[in-house]
Nucleic acid binder design. Structure first.
Length: 512
RNA sequence: UCCUCCUUAGCUCAGUUGGUUAGAGCAUCUGACUGUUAAUCAGAGGGUCGCCCGUUCAAGUCGGGCAGGGGGAGCCA
């Protein structure tokens, strides 16, 4: 049965919370259920209520630690001895889902302020203790990844995914406040010219060799669902640019797919990316926005998910203790986040970065696997890490890369030294994660853009619609892509990107 | 894809120079206890030592191949 909640408890306890979230909306809740977060936050006692959740542990045949995912803290449900059937008590096992009704009282024991003295306990869902894999103990992240459907029920993943939610909400909040239009760019794309990586093919043609063929033996995609060859998107940027040429400022936030055989702690085959695109912005405006954006969403999580972040910080600290001294990070998670929010990102050009690297003792002592010998090389991750983690010790915005190592759509810098053509590119490097943002001012000059496309063998005829923006009312504009999971990694301190997305997709893995 | 390390009970791990019935903690089950905080105490059950092939009188242990996982690199967000 469903009731409309408008009890005293709710209005007094959490009016600030409610009015912030959704002032005119009432919560409809199953049987007057109270969320455990609300219960614990209020610290009020001597009233009747009902809680529902999953049993974390059942101690002493009497004390149930119950969690409903609203917070990592459990409510202690007390089943007084002799008041409940042995048959019910036997079914209160780790993982079981129960409903408990009773009085909230000031706890008689230590360790919690209030507890629920149960008058009735109902088993909503049994959990076979011999088969349920989660135990009230520490599990390895690798093991939990194999049971990703259950890992939400652990403290670590509870905290990670509540923080992920907060960050996602803050993304929309930030851009909405700045009057950006949220644009849904297509997931299926006909263009394979985006240049961001290998793509997953989308087709309804049979794969058993009976697909219709052209005279030359190649597959006849005219017979395919879309009448042409299609793939999953690797970026919404090109479509984003089209909309920015109308709304001035837009952003996308959706899934992105790369069929690269990447097996690392910071790559996924399916990940979420945020791509703002702004008309009338140059490279500096772009960097300013990216820095403000990152700081805003981190601050949002710090303000709204303090408990979860503190839990993750503590978890990380314990993990750090296992490492040898020289591998430990200097700052704790909270200090790191505070530092990022309160300090300016370092901004240097690619050319300056090369000078710093070339002159570094690290390079002179040949400690880099790839020695920095001169202008024009692509930076290896060891170089990026040196700049971010050793030299500046803060996020770094690297700009104006050589044109040769960057994408066709990036704006060519004017007045470059001969042989040193650069583009208005910008990468933001974060400590521990590496590249978190990649962006640029876009080449709006038709002649320069088409010449560059020719040089890089990008088929102009396929991108006629993209080039139309340069034909009709072109303007200086810029944008960037931010890898959402990498940001979640940075904020939660999780080392593996597979642990910050609910059901990770990567080579040889698409379970769940 | 490359380099490197790992795979022993449900989980985390130990297992000596190759040697006879492969261990521990936690979890599970049984019992005791009852204001516990990953409850405690006693007892019990639980193993194709990732898979295949080889060396050997004898392989968890040595060699090869395969699979899965971790870390690093490349590709990138």
């Amino acid at each position: 049965m469903t009731h409309l909640i408008c009890a005293d408890l709710f209005s007094s306890v959490s009016s600030a919370f409610l009015s912030y979230l959704c002032p005119p909306i009432y919560f409809y809740m199953f049987n007057n259920r109270t969320r455990i977060k609300e219960l614990l936050a209020s610290e009020k006692a001597n009233y009747e209520t009902t809680v529902m959740g999953w049993v974390r542990t059942f101690r002493n045949n009497q004390f149930i630690a119950l969690n409903d995912g609203s917070t990592n803290n459990n409510i202690q449900v007390v089943a007084e001895l002799g008041k409940f059937d042995e048959a019910i008590l036997k079914r209160i096992t780790t993982g079981a889902c129960i409903k408990a009704t009773g009085e909230i009282i000031l706890s008689l024991g230590k360790g919690q302020k209030v507890e629920l003295k149960a008058t009735s306990i109902e088993i909503l869902g049994d959990s076979d203790a011999e088969k349920f894999p989660l135990q009230p103990k520490k599990h390895s992240l690798e093991f939990l990844r194999e049971i990703a459907h259950l890992r939400f029920r652990t403290n670590t993943f509870g905290a990670v995914f509540r923080v992920r939610h907060a960050l996602a909400f803050a993304v929309h909040d930030f851009f909405n406040k700045k009057n950006f239009v949220y644009l849904h760019t297509p997931i299926i794309t006909a263009s394979d010219a985006e240049g961001a990586g290998e793509m997953f093919r989308v087709t309804t043609l049979p794969i058993d060799g009976t697909a219709p063929k052209n005279d030359d033996g190649s597959i006849n995609f005219k017979e395919d669902f879309f009448g042409r060859s299609t793939n999953l998107t690797v970026s919404g940027q090109l479509e984003g640019e089209l909309a920015a040429m109308a709304f001035s400022d837009i952003y996308t936030f959706g899934p992105t797919f790369r069929a690269e055989n990447s097996n690392t702690t910071r790559h996924l085959a399916e990940f979420w990316m945020i791509e703002p695109e702004m008309a009338f912005h140059d490279l500096e405006d772009n960097a300013n926005l990216a820095e403000e954006f990152i700081k805003y969403i981190i601050k949002y999580a710090m303000d709204n998910n303090k408990e979860d972040l503190e839990f993750l910080a503590q978890r990380l600290e314990e993990e750090e203790k296992q490492k040898p001294q020289n591998e430990r990070s200097e700052l704790g998670l909270m200090d790191k986040l505070n530092f990022v929010v309160n300090n300016s990102f370092e901004r240097i050009t690619y050319t300056e970065a090369i000078e710093i690297l070339k002159e570094s003792n690290h390079n002179k002592k040949k400690k880099f696997q790839y020695l920095v010998e001169g202008w024009g090389i692509d930076l290896q991750s060891e170089h990026e890490r040196y700049l971010v983690e050793k030299h500046f010790k803060k996020p770094v915005i690297l700009t104006n890369y050589p044109a040769a190592i960057k994408a066709f759509y990036m704006r060519q810098d004017d007045n470059c030294e001969p042989g040193r053509q650069t583009v208005a590119a910008m990468d933001i490097l974060a400590p521990g994660i590496g590249e978190i943002v990649g962006g640029s001012q876009r080449e709006e000059r038709m002649d320069k853009l088409t010449k560059r496309m020719e040089e890089m063998h990008i088929p102009a005829e396929e991108l006629w619609w993209y080039l139309d923006t340069r034909r009709f009312g072109a303007c200086p504009h810029a944008g960037f892509g931010l890898g959402f999971e990498r940001l979640v990694q940075f904020v939660t301190g999780m080392g593996n990107i597979r642990d910050v997305i609910p059901f990770p997709r990567y080579p040889k893995s698409a379970e769940f």
